[in-house]
Design a binder for these strands. Structure first.
Length: 785
DNA sequence: AAGAGATTTATTTTT
DNA sequence: TAAATCTCTT
């Protein structure tokens, strides 16, 4: 298989790989482009290649830099390499682009302060912090937030940063009045960030480059260090990432990039597909390797995916192949509206669970917009099918969690205006301070170049510098500001020596945050529980010797690791509800793609832009392609003939993407409800005789002549004509004091039972896993005493 | 300063 | 529809 003789102990690194994969693993020198179709073993190649470099080539771990887009991908790769290469990979530079950027800035505090004006305690501002600053910048630019929505401003600013334009350069390049306005906002925005000693996500990629420009010796050091650079999902890199990678790889030129232009779905976020398309002209000596064998999906799914993506004009001509079995037909189903659609999905899943022992975690339901998850959730909730929503409100994004984190951030970086405003707005100690009082202190802070926190602390600790007065407040405002100042000073002193969980306790005490939650309202108690959860989260850093460093690392983790998969699994497995975007990189035996309608998938904006700019429409198609190729065994596609959008029903027209699917690959086409509205080509016309109104799905819908398998007769999958609502499992009656047993959490005691709509919520104090709130109808709880 | 009512506006979101 | 933001009132 391999033309290179390998040492016996490394032969295993290429065992079981196909020829192309082996080449990708073994072509270690020079630039390499791997165009990897979905399910073609991309991650395998990346991990085996790194193991190969370490073991066969004797490369030191810290000479390898591997960059991914998500923490999840990085973690997964690290785990797999560890298993392949043993655990001598500590020094490996593997992480997201952004974490690499931070690491680089942190590693060079002196130069960073000197050349970039960023103090070592700088914070990373996330999207919502950024919005905050942008709003302020719009105000300062003397604009009405109605003539320039903050969202648009921040996206334009981000665009400018991604083209590596400073506010001045951007201002110099404007051609429209619109951009002129943006330029003014950008200028203020940049200044506000610097004053807050904070950076945004774009800066994490941009500033390292700036640093290299201003301190070439730093670039030289890293260029020398990283002999081998690997980049995952190269099709999603933007211009700045491209420049960064190119600069780093310049010395050794051992740049290995993997990607799939057909899975580029982030152009709207400045991803530049040209980076991958033009790799070979950037590096004329590049080796190109195409991975086109799909090991993931049935032949039918691969065929459909290929047929769908083939319609895009702007793409490399490639063909995905597979040696897998033909598999089941793809089910296409029209439903009356979004409720029926959701019920159909749930009913099908239950049927598969019953007839084939399908596990819920083998199933994913994918949709274009997050709003679509609501009605699906509702349907899952009333049935007893467990589910989880990926990318819902994340833990660190909850208001009550952010509030406490704001205090932590402020203690770490006293210049953090955004957090300061949050502390004043959310905590009782901030009562009595309005925008005017805060402005006074903000002005003081700007005038005397002092961190904004000190403006408050000045009321209890007069500034050491005699030239710096106490901010000019009087009366009630002064009293209130003094209160804030004294609280900040106390917590600041505490932060010097306390572990993070001790600091948490202090914060809660000093700010009186506990009292902000009404113990008699269950929702508030849940929010308080989240606050306590944060304490547990913080305690993970308690073992660290240096409290300041612990706080720094914790805050960085919060900013950079939006842990999506912290979601508890109940042990039984859950159906995954997920947007098509978030589904990239995942795979499931059974996939439902819902809402295949014009205006939804493809999304209306792409439809509207179609004739002046075909790009968005092609990206929508790629998104559909990504969805299809997540499926291993079975694929269900649904659309509704009427859908409630923005509060009103409008006719649903089946997506144009459906037309690309070969009829022979489809199974069930049936219509159980009268449709209205004018549709595109009627399905009935395309698949003659498919319709069997009122039938029971048995035998219906096999148009490819295939015979049903014994154990997984596809007719079983064929929908019943009327997806009836599913009754909730009768709940047991729980009462406080009972001992219960949970599959995952073990033994515990019921401490409370609260009525919920058609259900009960049971509060259980588990012996090992703390107190949990569980829905009576869903939780696998047994009463044991 | 703070809360109540009115108005506006709707993708996707790795970091 | 529903969330978020704005305006007006107290």
């Amino acid at each position: 298989m391999a033309d290179q003789v390998t040492r016996p102990d490394t032969a295993r690194l290429v065992r079981g790989l196909n020829d192309d994969q082996v080449r990708a693993v073994q072509t270690t020198e020079g630039p390499v482009l791997v165009v990897a179709g979905p399910g073609s073993g991309k991650t395998r190649v990346l991990t085996h290649r790194i193991a190969w470099l370490l073991e066969e080539k004797g490369v030191l771990p810290d000479q390898i830099l591997a960059m991914t887009f998500t923490n999840k991908a990085a973690r997964e790769m690290r785990d797999r390499i560890e298993r392949l290469a043993g655990d001598e990979i500590g020094g490996l530079w593997m992480g997201t682009f952004h974490s690499f950027g931070v690491r680089l800035l942190r590693q060079n505090p002196g130069v960073v302060a000197d050349r970039l004006g960023l103090q070592p305690n700088f914070l990373v501002y996330d999207d919502s912090d950024q919005q905050n600053i942008v709003k302020r910048a719009i105000q300062l630019a003397g604009l009405d937030p109605r003539q320039l929505v903050p969202r648009r401003a921040s996206s334009r600013i981000s665009g400018a940063k991604n083209q590596m334009l400073s506010p001045k350069e951007f201002a110099a390049s404007v051609t429209s009045h619109d951009d002129e306005v943006i330029a003014r906002v950008y200028e203020h925005y940049a200044r506000l960030l610097r004053e807050a000693n904070a950076v945004d996500f774009d800066d994490l990629l941009r500033l390292p480059i700036e640093l290299f420009d201003r301190a070439p010796q730093v670039l030289d050091r890293y260029q020398t260090q990283f002999r081998y650079i690997l980049v995952d999902e190269y099709q999603d890199t933007n211009r700045v990432q491209y420049v960064l990678v190119t600069a780093l790889a310049n010395r050794w030129r051992n740049l290995f990039v993997v990607g799939d232009p057909d899975q580029s779905i982030y152009a709207w976020r400045a991803a530049d597909i040209r980076n991958i398309l033009e790799f070979q002209s950037d590096y004329p000596d590049a080796t190109r390797i195409d991975l086109e064998v799909n090991y993931r999906s049935t032949a039918r799914i691969v065929k459909v995916a290929d047929a769908v993506i083939r319609e895009n004009k702007q793409r490399l001509d490639r063909k995905l192949t597979t040696t897998n079995d033909e598999g089941e037909p793809i089910a296409l189903r029209e439903l009356a509206d979004q409720n029926h659609e959701a019920q159909f999905v749930v009913a099908e899943i239950r049927r598969l669970m019953q007839t084939q022992g399908l596990r819920p975690d083998a199933v994913a339901v994918m949709y274009r917009t997050t709003a679509q998850s609501r009605v699906l959730e509702e349907a899952f909730r009333v049935s007893d099918v467990p589910y989880r929503v990926v990318g819902g409100v994340k833990f660190y994004e909850r208001k009550e969690v952010r509030d406490v984190i704001a205090v932590l951030r402020l203690l770490h970086n006293p210049s953090d205006v955004v957090s300061l405003e949050r502390v004043i707005g959310s905590f009782a100690i901030g009562k009595g301070l309005g925008p005017k009082a805060v402005d006074t202190i903000r002005d003081w802070s700007t005038a005397y170049q002092r961190p904004i926190s000190e403006g408050f602390i000045a009321f209890v600790e007069p500034p050491a510098d005699a030239d710096v007065p106490v901010p000019g407040l009087s009366g009630a405002a002064k009293t209130a500001a003094t209160k804030v100042g004294s609280a900040l000073a106390r917590m600041r002193d505490g932060a010097k020596t306390a572990t993070l969980s001790e600091l948490f306790d202090q914060i809660v005490e000093v700010t009186g945050y506990r009292n902000a939650f009404d113990g008699s309202i269950e929702e508030e108690m849940q929010r308080w529980a989240n606050v306590l959860e944060l304490r547990t989260d913080l305690s993970r850093y308690d073992a660290m010797a240096d409290p300041t460093e612990a706080l720094a690392q914790y805050l960085e983790q919060v900013a950079l690791v939006a842990d999506v998969d912290t979601m508890e699994d109940d042990g039984q497995g859950q159906v995954t509800l997920i947007t098509l975007h978030s589904a990239k990189g995942l795979e499931f035996p059974v996939v439902f793609i819902v809402g295949l309608e014009e205006g939804l998938l493809p999304i209306s904006r792409a439809v509207e832009a179609e004739f002046q700019d075909p790009q968005p429409m092609e990206e929508e198609r790629r998104l559909f392609y990504v969805g299809i190729t997540r499926a291993q065994k079975m694929l269900f596609l649904t659309y509704a003939s009427s859908r409630q959008l923005y509060g009103r029903y409008s006719p649903g027209v089946e997506s144009r993407f459906i037309e690309s699917i070969p009829q022979t690959a489809l199974s069930t086409v049936s219509r159980s409800y009268p449709r209205f509205g004018n549709s595109r080509t009627s399905l009935r016309d395309r698949v003659g005789g498919a319709e069997r109104l009122g039938g029971h799905g048995r035998g219906a819908g096999r148009y490819d002549g295939s015979q049903p398998g014994q154990s997984d007769d596809f007719s079983q999958l064929s929908p019943s004509m009327r997806a009836e609502p599913v009754a909730a499992r009768p709940s047991q009656t729980y009462s406080a004091g009972q001992k219960v047993f949970h599959n995952k959490f073990g033994e515990g005691q019921v401490v409370g039972v609260e009525p919920r709509r058609d259900d009960q919520e049971v509060v259980v104090a588990f012996d090992r896993h703390g107190t949990k709130r569980l829905m009576a109808s869903l939780a696998p709880l047994d009463i044991i005493a």
